[in-house]
């Protein structure tokens, strides 16, 4: 189980991006974290993956543990070795490498040759299009294919917990639906998922549990289906507000999602 407790993170010693966030990803569950631009979603994943340092960010207090072991102060590669692998925001595939090389880069940590083969087979089974485009340059894939490659690349390390940062970003509704199904399938195969999203519809559909992050703090949490039914989430994230003006007002204060109807 991945546990984050009372986590405070600052950038450059000044900007406070997370102000005491507590959440948990129980084994085998899909946990969604919703939040608008700048809520601190990416910061949360950076803290888990131990790459805050690359952004002049720092954990001021609190803890991040996986199965009781602290992740703070570890090297990013050690976090991967422990079984937590991230699919970063904006996909960030290696565009000059081939599809196959991208997958190899994802499986670099694994020593065992047969495990690597098995992981690769799993990825090609999940994403047949990647097998077809194996030797092509990754930069030439479409946005949706690139997202699949980014997920496949992370799966090459056979993670226990998959961390996904806005996989729906910039994709058409139909593709977003596919991504949702894939997340569901990956979870069914035994991988826990921490899904960071602005697209609440898809996220709440696949998630078991959900948290709403609001300017660095958890403002709502609970069962994903129950949360989806609450007034706040209906209004703020799903665009089914009873009072359109009220929703609009919240939009203009910048508290809601930019693509809340997607």
């Amino acid at each position: 189980m991945l546990e984050v407790e009372d986590l405070r993170v600052t950038y450059g010693g000044a900007v406070e991006a997370l102000r005491g966030v507590t959440l948990a990803v129980p084994d085998g569950k899909v946990v969604a974290v919703l939040g608008s631009n700048g809520a601190g979603k990416t910061t949360l994943l950076r803290a888990v993956s131990s790459v805050l340092r690359l952004h002049r960010g720092r954990v001021e207090s609190g803890s991040v543990t996986f199965d009781g072991k602290s992740l703070l102060g570890k090297d990013p590669s050690q976090v991967v070795d422990l079984g937590l692998v991230q699919v970063p925001e904006g996909r960030r595939i290696f565009s000059r490498l081939t599809v196959e090389e991208n997958l190899r880069a994802g499986g670099m940590g694994a020593r065992d040759k047969s495990a690597k083969k098995a992981a690769q087979q799993r990825v090609y089974d999940l994403f047949p299009v990647l097998a077809e485009r194996r030797t092509g340059r990754a930069g030439l894939l479409s946005g949706g294919e690139q997202q699949m490659l980014a997920i496949g690349r992370a799966l090459m390390a056979a993670p226990k917990v998959l961390l996904l940062d806005e996989p729906s970003l910039g994709l058409a509704p139909r593709i977003i639906g596919q991504i949702g199904e894939i997340i569901h399938e990956i979870n069914r195969q035994g991988t826990s998922v921490l899904l960071v999203e602005q697209n609440a519809t898809m996220a709440l559909e696949v998630a078991d549990l959900a948290y709403v992050l609001d300017v660095g703090e958890v403002s709502l949490q609970g069962d994903a289906k129950e949360l989806a039914a609450t007034d706040e989430v209906q209004k703020l994230y799903l665009g089914h507000g009873s009072d359109a003006d009220e929703v609009h007002a919240v939009v203009s204060t910048g508290k809601t999602l930019s693509r809340w109807t997607a």
Partner: peptide
């Protein structure tokens, strides 16, 4: 080689390479 792939991945995007466990 794996070294070559790691090298090129790291040169293209160091942070993402680190996220993939490349040292």
């Amino acid at each position: 080689s794996d070294w070559g792939v790691a090298m090129r991945a790291n040169a293209e995007d160091g942070e993402t390479a680190a996220l993939m466990g490349i040292k």
